[in-house]
Write a protein that binds this DNA or RNA. Structure first.
Length: 537
DNA sequence: TTCTCGTTGTAAAG
DNA sequence: CTTTACAACGAGAA
């Protein structure tokens, strides 16, 4: 467009220079280019009532990661003769105001499939089209456009990974050259405002009190992302032989996976560039692992969840969610709190929850263990509760992927073999028989002999005394007996599944209430008859 | 309608 | 170290 000489690049995710079609389009033929990021106070401001340091929605680790990513983006833009303008306020209001004030002719941003951004984009697009502003929104966060896949499948998202792969095929850009190297950007025009500033610090946002606290070892930003990518890719052998289920969840000094997920979440790393880098390695080695456990397949899983999430109303809740089994989860706040605060009494579970809180990242198998334990494995707490805590604490928490995984792990969708339960004691033992991971994240157990470290409540009192850790005083007793709790969970799931089948997926709230009552009655009956048996024995 | 198969279970047995 | 019983689900294909 000839008249589009003043452009605005709206950064949300996609915090990178490389493979950024929206940025590229924004700078093409523009006299001035305004690159902006809008800080939504709702996302960033401290919330004193939150269950961990951070805002109402995000833990401090992720806020810090985002700020680091913004600082890095600003530096990169400066090298290209531009800079990042950081604004504050409700994003659509702030944006529309700037479109007017700067007389923008071309608005560019990366397409985002999340409901939050979909709603936001409608507001902004409505204004833009009324004002005659050209809007360019590029699909570059994921490998595929979720709409394309859903369309190919007759309007419904595929519900199994295999059918997703068939529909997806090779990405259209697989063998084309992505724009990685960057050229100089048009200058920022006259900004004429003073309410924006440099990227704020954690302290400026009001988190001064937490500066000394242990925080995530992973630093945000595109530079860091590309450095990490190089490190992973340079080890061709490792890339070629990667098998996700064989990774060690207890490895924390050198994690078993790439830890590129937080960079993908914020778009510091382009998933498409990552994909091409892995393919390059595959071309140069004799053989490599194949689906669905290979490294490149991990990226496709992310797209799978994005696709289903985009095509499923109420994807992030049980009620009204077409693909989610209706299950009478309990609402036990105390059980939830023991899990959240790492005091379930199962060291493997608690250590993972400590790492999650401190680092904002844990290995995916560790996520499986604690998610299973909270929901269908032991505590039978609603998956939405666990999802909320993950969403808050993870630096890589991604709406589609996080919700998808909780649906999976709780046997609410995608995966239904509820008999397969991760043992909170023996699963970790397989990888880390000495319990080094537990000793590191739960120092109170650091002197517990390895024979007892996964089940410290079974240690004789003399051993507990020697280890300076009395169970029930220094470290909690287990909150449930895994054997009986998991058995009870299986029974409830069997009943809930039967109800869902019987009602053909149309389970009402009353049906669920009735089932909950029935399960309680059965439980009372069971314990009564057990007492009876004990009496007669 | 029936069949196959599913990214990542456990414990016991061979 | 590998195989098997456990108990059994749903999506998608045939």
């Amino acid at each position: 467009m000839e008249t589009a000489s003043v452009s605005l690049m709206w950064f949300r995710k996609g915090l990178r220079i490389h493979d950024n079609p929206a940025l590229e389009y924004a700078s093409k033929g523009s006299k001035f280019l305004y690159p902006i990021f809008v800080i939504d106070p709702h996302y960033m401001e401290p919330d004193p009532r939150a269950s961990s340091p951070g805002s109402i929605r995000a833990g401090l680790n992720r806020i810090r990661f985002l700020l680091e990513s913004l600082v890095d983006l600003d530096l990169s833009l400066k090298k290209l003769g531009s800079r990042l303008l950081v604004l504050k306020g409700e994003p659509s209001e702030v944006l529309i105001q700037r479109l007017k004030e700067w007389d923008i002719k071309k608005l560019c941003f990366e397409f985002d499939a999340e409901p939050y951004y979909q709603a936001l984009d409608i507001k902004v697009k409505n204004y833009a089209s009324a004002a005659g502003i050209e809007v360019f929104s590029a699909v570059s966060h994921t490998l595929f456009n979720p709409s394309d896949i859903i369309q190919k499948n007759g309007g419904k998202p595929p519900l199994s990974y295999q059918s997703f792969l068939k529909l997806a095929g090779e990405p259209t850009w697989a063998s084309s050259t992505l724009s990685i190297a960057s050229s100089l950007l048009p200058p920022v025009g006259d900004v004429r405002i003073n309410e924006f500033s440099e990227v704020p610090t954690i302290k400026e946002l009001g988190y001064g009190d937490y500066e000394q606290e242990e925080s995530t070892p992973f630093k945000g930003g595109e530079s860091e992302a590309l450095k990490r990518l190089r490190e992973s890719i340079n080890n061709k052998e490792w890339v070629a032989n990667f098998e996700k289920p064989k990774g060690d969840p207890s490895a924390y000094i050198k994690p078993a996976t790439t830890v590129l997920s937080p960079y993908l979440k914020f778009g510091c790393l382009s998933s498409r560039y990552f994909y091409q880098c892995i393919q390059d390695v595959y071309k140069n080695v004799k053989k490599h692992t194949s689906p669905p456990v290979s490294l490149v397949e991990q990226l496709l899983w992310r797209d799978f969840y994005y696709t289903v999430a985009f095509g499923t109303p109420y994807f992030d809740q049980m009620k009204g969610n077409r693909i989610c089994k209706q299950i009478p989860w309990n609402d036990d706040e105390e059980l939830l709190a023991t899990w959240r605060e790492a005091r379930t009494g199962f060291p493997w579970i608690d250590a993972i929850m400590v790492q999650l809180r401190k680092w904002g990242w844990v290995h995916h198998l560790a996520r499986h263990c604690v998610a299973c334990f909270l929901t269908r494995g032991d505590l039978f707490v609603h998956w939405e509760k666990g999802r909320d805590i993950f969403q808050r604490l993870l630096i890589d928490s991604d709406w589609a992927v996080n919700n998808g995984n909780w649906l999976w792990l709780s046997c609410s969708s995608f995966f239904y073999q509820y008999n397969r339960i991760y043992s909170p004691t023996s699963f970790g033992k397989k990888y880390d028989p000495n319990g080094n991971y537990i000793r590191n994240f739960l120092p109170v157990l650091k002197d517990m002999p390895k024979e007892y470290i996964y089940e410290p409540w079974t240690a004789p009192l003399s051993i507990q005394t020697q280890a300076k850790c009395i169970i029930g005083r220094d470290y909690p007793k287990p909150v449930v007996c895994h054997g009986s709790a998991s058995k009870e969970c299986k029974r409830r799931l069997a009943e809930a599944y039967a109800l869902n089948r019987q009602m053909n997926g149309q389970v009402s709230e009353e049906d669920l209430r009735n089932l909950r009552r029935k399960l309680e009655d059965d439980k009372d009956q069971e314990s009564k008859s057990r007492r009876q048996r004990q009496k007669t024995d």
